[in-house]
C-alpha cells in the first residue's frame, strides 16, 4: 500500500490499461495557488500528474456531466460530494450506472481560496506547502504554510476549509466501485456543525434583513447557475423572454426572486458541493436557503439526495397520505 496518490494512479492506470474506461477524470496541479485543475486523463503516460489533495475543490461530476456522450465509459476520482452528485444525476437518468467507474478517495474538506485571501489581508502567496492527505486524515498535522514577499505564516486548516465542508455529512462516496485506502475513510467530517442554528434563532425580520443584504450583492452574472451540476436545462427559465418570467435587473425584488427560484429548482437535488459559492464573484450567501429547505424536506419526506441512484428526488414524486397541516 502506497500513498493515496500512488494508489489512485495505480487504479486509474489499471482501468485505462484494461480499456475499461475511455478517460479518467481527476485533478492535476493548477497554475493558481490552492486550486488544482480538473483534467481528463486519456493516456497512461499523463497519469503521473494525477493528484488528490485539499486543493481539489472542483466538483468533478460537473466536469464529467458536461462532456458525457452516450456510450462513453468514464472513470472518476470522487470525494463524497462528487460521488453524491453522480448518484443524484444517475437518479435523474443523466447517465447509466455502468458508464461510470467511481473511485472513492478519502476527503478531509477542500480549501476556500477566499478565506485564505481574507486571512492574509489580500497579500499574494508565492509559495505554499500542504501536509500530505495521510498526515491530515490521521490528525498528525493540521496547518499549512504560506510564503510570500517578506512573510511566512502557518494557517490552521480548520480556519480555511470551505463552509460546505464544515457542514458535510458524507465526506466519503456512499457508492463506489473501489475505495482508495479504506482505512482513512471519514464517516463524518470532524468539524460538522449546525449551520442553521444561528438562523433559526433569528426573528423573521432579522432574517429578512440578512437575506436582503446578501441578495443585494448579487450582480446577476449567473455564475452560480452555470457552476451548479444540477442546473443543466438546455433552456433556463431565467433566460426566457417570451414570456419573460424574471426581471433582469439587480433590483432587490428581482434578485431575490431569482435566488428563490434557483433554490427551488435544485431543492431535493442539491447535495451541497459548494460550487455555486465558489463561483460567486461577490460572495453572496447561496447555501443557507438551500440548507434550510433540505432540512425541511428531510423532515417531511425523509429524503436525502445523492444516496440512491434508484430513488426519485422528493419533489418529483409523492405519497398519498402526507401531512398537509398548512392547507385549508
Amino acid at each position: 500500500m502506497g500513498t493515496i496518490n500512488e494508489d489512485l494512479r495505480k487504479q486509474a492506470q489499471k482501468l485505462l490499461a484494461n480499456k475499461e474506461i475511455d478517460y479518467f477524470v481527476g485533478c492535476r496541479q493548477g497554475t493558481i495557488p490552492f486550486r488544482s485543475a480538473p483534467h481528463a486523463f486519456r493516456t497512461e503516460a499523463e497519469l503521473d500528474q494525477l493528484t488528490f489533495d485539499m486543493t481539489c475543490s472542483n466538483n468533478l461530476a460537473q466536469f464529467l456531466h458536461k462532456n458525457y456522450k452516450k456510450g462513453d465509459k468514464i472513470g472518476i476520482a470522487a470525494k463524497g460530494c462528487d460521488a453524491r452528485t453522480l448518484i443524484q444525476l444517475m437518479a435523474e437518468n443523466q447517465f447509466p450506472r455502468e458508464a461510470i467507474k467511481i473511485i472513492g478517495v478519502p476527503c478531509c474538506g477542500v480549501l476556500d481560496q477566499k478565506k485564505i485571501r481574507d486571512k492574509l489581508g489580500g497579500k499574494p502567496v508565492l509559495k505554499y506547502s500542504l501536509p500530505s492527505m495521510e498526515e491530515i486524515l490521521s490528525g498528525k498535522k493540521d496547518t499549512l504554510t504560506v510564503e510570500g514577499k517578506d512573510f511566512k505564516e502557518e494557517i490552521k486548516l480548520a480556519d480555511v476549509v470551505s463552509n460546505n465542508c464544515l457542514v458535510c455529512e458524507y465526506p466519503s462516496a456512499p457508492l463506489a466501485d473501489t475505495f482508495i485506502q479504506e482505512g482513512l475513510k471519514q464517516e463524518k467530517a470532524s468539524g460538522s456543525m449546525n449551520w442553521l442554528e444561528k438562523f433559526e434563532k433569528m426573528s423573521s425580520d432579522e432574517r429578512w434583513e440578512y437575506f436582503s443584504k446578501q441578495y443585494s450583492k448579487c450582480i446577476r452574472c449567473y455564475a452560480c447557475r452555470n457552476a451548479c451540476p444540477f442546473c443543466y436545462c438546455e433552456q433556463c427559465i431565467v433566460d426566457d423572454s417570451q414570456p419573460q418570467w424574471f426581471g433582469k435587473s439587480t433590483n432587490l425584488s428581482d434578485t431575490m426572486v431569482f435566488h428563490i427560484i434557483r433554490t427551488l429548482h435544485v431543492a431535493s437535488r442539491c447535495i451541497g458541493c459548494g460550487a455555486c459559492t465558489r463561483a460567486c464573484p461577490t460572495g453572496v450567501d447561496l447555501v443557507t436557503l438551500g440548507l434550510y429547505l433540505d432540512k425541511e424536506i428531510k423532515e417531511r419526506f425523509g429524503y436525502t439526495p445523492g444516496l440512491d441512484p434508484g430513488e426519485l428526488p422528493a419533489l418529483c414524486t409523492y405519497k398519498e397520505d402526507e401531512k398537509q397541516d398548512f392547507i385549508m
Binding site: 429578512w208 437575506f211 436557503l289 429547505l293
Partner: peptide
C-alpha cells in the same frame, strides 16, 4: 411545502 418553507424562512 417547499415554496412555503422558503418564503417563511426568508421573512
Amino acid at each position: 411545502v417547499a415554496l412555503r418553507a422558503i418564503l417563511n424562512f426568508l421573512g
